[in-house]
Structure formats: structure tokens, C-alpha cells
Design a protein around this nucleic acid. Structure first.
Length: 639
RNA sequence: GCCAGUGUAGCUCAAGGGGUAGAGCAUCCGCCUUGUAAGCGGAAGGUUGCCCGUUCGAGUCGGGCCACUGGCUCCA
């Protein structure tokens, strides 16, 4: 009895099959199917059912089918483009996390205004419900075909495909070199949208052609597509570059100050100060010592550190003074090392943990600057831990725990860790790498974090752990980095005297928890949508008089709150109605609005309205004060 | 740095295919005395990102810079 494969349909029904293709097996049910999963491999439905084993048919709504759907959507896009813009050369068109894209070389530039036309043409192709056929060509046929059509990029790809039988997919008059899999027909790509247009280098290489990339997304249902578009809209609404000026937090003035240089306005500075105070207090508690170091240093320092050899293109030009050259610091490490080296260190002193909110300057190409998230001058929440080899494991564990505590305090609850291991080119000895990598791995596992190993992705000077958080919109941000350095201790000849009376080389660990204050602030603004939790809100409470006669009482209430350590303001501007003031306070996302009129004044109360819009009515002042202090001291996200 | 797009008042945006810039909000001045998301009227505010050029005439057309947006590349 020959072996049979067990084919499980989306509904759970199982069929034994042998010697047929999936399409034949499924018949009309193929209209609801996107592909087949066999031993973790995605199979095309046109292929024969494998001889044995278990195969799961993916329904259109199956998350694993999304990739197939989007890949087919990319083909529909390419098809539409070839119809509308003859002479366009095709490059590649894969599915990506949020959708798909296709790279083209257009004979003439196109712009955003062309997207609706292309989308319209795509809808026609979907309405035509063209079946996608898989076509196998011999290598020479494939080459001739692509050459005839002038598909230079595809020819290059062909050269890298092994084997003699080359897979193409055909839908109507459109034929594309492609490994698949694809949906059975274009009619199944119903819910899609083109989103963006951007330049992209062929094969990501800046020395090669600049292609035009069209981004789009596709979903199995209209609801999911709409949900995704709403999510994009929400992200746009929370953009820190919009909220920053609107809430008067910061500005970046390229024509007066310079690109990538941030001005922290009073309210933004207030938030930053709160972050810094928390950060410093917790670092002292955790056994760190705060240091301050200058913004510039002599060129010999950067010579020793190796920055002038390896990092110079990211550094600002030298400043010449009295025949010496100084450089703006791109990193704090050399200064911390210099503090370490001011005396002979004993093994008994270690670990030494220097921390600093150190402002550094890096020359970033203008094209990569982005609001607060990518700037040229920024303050790292930096620390360097110098320890003995036998202390490495505990130090790493403590750093990781500390990082998680700090990030959780800012309302982040989802974390992913990335462990980057030794690359091909590295310095130091493999035993040290091994020990360091294992310490990192144990620490992550000990904290129960899910992690991914990025083999060979470590810097040449040491392995590292990065922590990624997810914000309230489920977007990932890499914040914490914990990085071993086997390079700088050598270069600076850092030593400590061991119990044996001899010099030993310490381990050094770089570490930043928030990354930079500028970037972190930008992320926080988006995470909270500008509505900071009470402990971080620049203004925690605003007191609004009902009419001019209530101003004295409003000022008295605000003064009382201030005396209780609450960041409060009385808005007593003439000529503004209560309605106007309430609206303004809501827009400013101030957590507590205290309305004070004659009724409240008579009873020593304030009418409490929350940022959420909830009106709690008149409350005794003491109750309001207790409530605000409680929310602030617990760093709660609630009001 | 590269591709595409954008740059008009403090902010958000208008000005058919070239004919000496307009609105709302904010600001200032009045009036209104206000009870939970914009009360009314008036005034002031611009070398249209910068520099060249075409033209009798440029916000508008051409070139070059600068900056921003979306990406790509980069981020030891």
C-alpha cells in the first residue's frame, strides 16, 4: 500500500490524497484557499500533494496566508504598472510585515498622483479574475524571454537561481519570474490599497540604480484593511512632530539653530527634568556613580580610542585652539575611562559603575534626520561598568533587571531581546567572547524574556543585548543596549591589581537604557499620544475661574496645589469664557481640570473634570489633592 | 548622500494656462461677565525657503543651493 498524504482543510476536515495537485483535490473549494503548509514549508496549490505527511490548507483568512495574498497583490501591482507604463522594467516585489512593495524602473518619473490610476487599473485586473498559472521554463528559454523583454534586473536574478527549471507565473498577458506561491486567481485580492512611493536602490546598493518603489497593503477582509488604515491614521495623529509644537514641548529650527538640534521648551524641559531626576535617583540606588564630562576633548584622546580611525565620518570637524585640535564628543566612553585611570585600581574596588547623562554630537546625513528620533545632538543615558571577569554574570543580570524596571516605569510592558553574537571580524580572544555571550544569554533567560539570536551581528569589539519595547500602538522601538567592549580596555590599557599583586585587564560594558533623552522623549510622546501620565505631565492640574470675580479663589486654589507639590496653573486670562478655557485645557491634555466658581469658593471645593472628559462635580480640595498625589507617586497611568 | 514630493503670515491652508498675495485660528485693541471642547467686532501681521536666470512683469516658468516629508543607503 503506497503512502498517502493527509490534507487538512481550513474547516478541519481531513482528506487522504495522492498523485493529484492541490487545485484538483480542492475543486471549487480552491476559491477559499491561499496555499498549503507542509513541514513548515509554504507550497503552491498548483503543486502536487506531497507523497506523505500532513499538509494544512491555508484558508484566505489564515494569518500564514497573508504573505501569499500580499505577494499576489504585488503581482497585480506590477501587472497594472506594465499596462499603464510600457517600457517599465521590473525588479522585485515581495510581501513585507505591513503589506507589500514592488520596485520598478520607470521610463519617466511618476509621482503620488499616479497612484490612484495604478490602483484603478489593479481593481480592473482583480475584477477580470485572471487565474495565476505556474509556468516552468528551461534556463535558456527563461533567459531568452527576459532578454527579449529587456528585463535586466530579472536576468540578474535568474543568474542566481540554481537548477534548470525556472518558475514563472502568468496572469493574463503578464508573466513574471517568481518562485511563488500565489493565490489561484487575481479575483481573490479584493481588499488592498497603495500607500506610498519611494526611491530604493537596486539590491540596496547605493552604487547601483535608483528604482521607484511602490508600497501597498492587502488584507483578506475589508474590515482588516480599514482597521489597518485607521491604525496608520492614529499613528499619524500621534506623530511627535505634530504634538511637540502643539503642546509646546520642543522645536527644531533648522534655519536658525541647525538641522537635528533640539530646543527643549519649558514644558518639554519639565518632562525631561522629571525623567532625569527619576533616572539619577534610581542609578544611585542601584550602585552607580554619576559623573560629568566635557563636550570636547583633544584629538589624541580620539586617536587612542580609535574613533578617528573608525568613526571620523560621523564626527564634527576639529576645533583648533592654541595649536591643538579638539573634537566634539560623539561618545562618552573615553572620558569615563580617563576617570577610571586617574589611579591604580584594586580588584576590591570593582565593579565600578559610572553613569552620565552625556550630550554627544554626531554628524548624521541630512536625509536620515527625523524629528526627535534621529538628531545630531543628543543626550545619552550612558553608563560604563568596569568589572572583574568573575563579576560579569551578576553585573549583566543586574543591568537587565534595572533596565526592565526603568522601562516598566514608563509604561512599557512588552519586550523582546536580541542577542548579537561574534561576527567574523572581531578583536579580543574567543574565551572572553564566550563568557560574555553566555552571561548575556543567562541574564535574558533568567528574566524570562523572549529573545532572538542575531548570529554574527555583534560589533567587532563585543557581543550585545538589545531590548525592544512595543508602544501602545504595537510599534517596536529599540531602547536598551548592553554591550561588551574588548577593544577600549586594550587601547587605553585599563588595568586593576588582582589579589595576586599583578595587573589584570577589566571587562568593560557600555549600556544605555533609554537610548537618548531626545529619542526617548519622542517615543514617549507617541506612546502616550501626548497625554502623559500624572507623574510626567508638565502641568498636572489647571484651575479655571468661571468668571472674573472668581479669579482670586482660583489663584488661591492653584497656590495651595503648588504648595502641596503639584504642578498647577491658574488660567486667569481676561476675556475668555469657561468653555474656551476647558477646550484649551483638553487640547493641552492636562490630566486634571479644576473649575472654580462662586459655588465652589463658598464651600472650599473645586469641580473636578478629568482629561478623559469625565466630570466628577464639586469635590473638597483635600480630596482632589490626595487623588493627584496618589496618581503621581505610584507613577500610575490612571487619573 | 540617492529617488520622488513639498516649502506662501506664529499655525493650518487658498491664489484657473505668469499681471504688483487671501482666509480661519493664534496675537493686539475694544465690547461681552461668562458654569465644562471655540461669545462678538476691529486692527496689525508676508522680500511667497535662499540665490541666479527667462520675461515689460515671477508665488506661478528654468537652473543651483538649503530644509522638510516618505523611503533607500548609512548608523564601528
Amino acid at each position: 500500500m503506497a503512502a498517502m498524504a493527509k490534507v487538512i482543510l481550513p474547516g478541519g476536515e481531513a482528506i487522504e490524497a495522492r498523485g493529484v495537485s492541490f487545485l484538483e483535490l480542492l475543486g471549487p473549494r480552491a476559491k477559499e484557499a491561499a496555499g498549503a503548509l507542509w513541514n513548515g514549508q509554504l507550497l503552491d496549490l498548483r503543486e502536487p500533494v506531497p507523497p506523505e505527511g500532513e499538509v494544512r490548507i491555508l484558508g484566505l483568512r489564515d494569518p500564514a496566508a497573508l504573505e501569499v495574498l500580499r505577494h499576489t497583490a504585488a503581482h497585480v501591482l506590477a501587472h497594472a504598472v506594465t499596462r499603464l507604463f510600457p517600457g517599465t522594467k521590473l525588479a522585485i516585489g515581495p510581501a513585507i510585515a505591513d503589506g507589500f512593495y514592488y520596485d520598478f524602473l520607470f521610463p519617466n518619473p511618476i509621482s503620488h498622483e499616479d497612484l490612484p490610476r495604478i490602483e484603478e487599473e489593479m481593481r480592473k485586473i482583480v475584477a477580470e479574475d485572471l487565474p495565476l498559472e505556474r509556468v516552468w521554463l528551461s534556463r535558456s528559454e527563461a533567459e531568452r524571454l527576459l532578454r527579449e523583454r529587456g528585463e535586466d534586473y530579472k536576468l540578474e536574478l535568474l543568474g542566481e537561481i540554481p537548477g534548470e527549471k525556472i518558475s514563472f507565473y502568468r496572469q493574463g498577458d503578464f508573466l513574471d519570474l517568481c518562485r511563488g506561491p500565489h493565490l489561484p486567481s487575481t479575483g481573490l485580492v479584493k481588499h488592498f490599497k497603495l500607500l506610498d512611493l519611494a526611491g530604493a536602490y537596486w539590491r540596496g546598493d547605493p552604487n547601483r540604480d535608483m528604482l521607484t518603489r511602490i508600497y501597498g497593503t492587502a488584507f483578506p477582509t475589508q474590515e482588516e484593511l480599514e482597521r489597518y488604515l485607521r491604525w496608520r491614521e492614529e499613528a499619524r495623529r500621534r506623530d511627535h512632530r505634530t504634538l511637540g509644537p502643539q503642546l509646546d514641548l520642543f522645536s527644531i529650527q533648522n534655519d536658525t539653530i541647525g538641522a537635528g538640534l533640539v530646543l527643549w521648551h519649558p514644558k518639554g524641559a519639565r518632562v525631561r527634568r522629571l525623567i532625569e531626576d527619576f533616572w539619577v535617583a534610581e542609578h544611585y540606588k542601584a550602585g552607580y556613580q554619576l559623573v560629568y564630562t566635557p563636550h570636547i576633548g583633544r584629538s589624541r584622546l580620539w586617536q587612542t580610542s580609535g574613533h578617528l580611525d573608525f568613526y571620523r565620518e560621523s564626527m564634527y570637524a576639529p576645533i583648533a585652539v592654541e595649536g591643538q585640535e579638539f573634537f566634539l564628543k560623539p561618545m562618552n566612553c573615553p572620558f569615563h575611562i580617563a576617570i577610571y585611570k586617574t589611579k591604580t585600581r584594586s580588584y576590591r574596588e570593582l565593579p565600578i559603575r559610572y553613569c552620565e547623562l552625556g550630550t554627544v554630537y554626531r554628524f548624521e546625513r541630512s536625509g536620515v534626520l527625523h524629528g526627535l528620533l534621529r538628531v545630531r545632538g543628543f543626550t545619552q543615558d550612558d553608563a560604563h561598568i568596569i568589572c572583574r571577569p568573575d563579576q560579569v554574570e551578576e553585573e549583566i543580570r543586574n543591568v537587565l533587571r534595572f533596565a526592565l524596571f526603568v522601562l516598566r516605569s514608563f509604561g512599557f510592558t512588552e519586550f523582546t531581546a536580541y542577542l548579537s553574537t561574534r561576527p567574523e571580524k572581531f578583536i579580543g580572544n574567543p574565551e572572553d567572547w564566550e563568557r560574555a555571550t553566555e552571561a548575556l544569554r543567562k541574564a535574558v533567560e533568567g528574566e524570562g524574556l523572549s529573545y532572538e539570536v542575531k548570529a554574527g551581528e555583534g560589533a567587532f569589539y563585543g557581543p550585545k543585548i538589545d531590548l525592544e519595547v512595543q508602544d501602545s500602538l504595537k510599534r517596536p522601538w529599540q531602547l536598551t543596549t548592553v554591550q561588551f567592549d574588548f577593544n577600549l580596555p586594550e587601547r587605553f590599557d585599563m588595568t586593576f591589581i588582582g589579589p595576586d599583586g599583578r595587573e589584570h585587564r577589566p571587562y568593560m560594558i557600555h549600556r544605555a537604557l533609554l537610548g537618548s533623552l531626545e529619542r526617548f522623549f519622542g517615543i514617549l510622546i507617541e506612546h502616550y499620544g501626548g497625554a502623559f501620565p500624572v507623574w510626567l505631565a508638565p502641568v498636572q492640574a489647571v484651575v479655571l475661574p468661571v468668571s472674573e470675580g472668581d479669579i482670586p479663589y482660583a489663584e488661591e486654589v492653584a497656590a495651595k496645589l503648588l504648595a502641596e507639590g503639584i504642578r498647577a496653573e491658574a488660567w486667569t486670562r481676561e476675556g475668555k469664557t469657561l468653555r474656551w478655557l476647558v477646550r484649551e485645557a483638553q487640547i493641552q491634555k492636562i490630566p486634571y481640570i479644576l473649575v472654580c466658581g462662586a459655588r465652589e469658593a463658598a464651600e472650599g471645593k473645586a469641580a473636578l473634570r478629568l482629561r478623559t472628559g469625565e466630570d466628577l462635580g464639586p469635590r473638597p480640595l483635600d480630596e482632589v489633592i490626595a487623588r493627584i498625589r496618589e496618581a503621581a507617586s505610584t507613577r500610575s497611568s490612571g487619573l
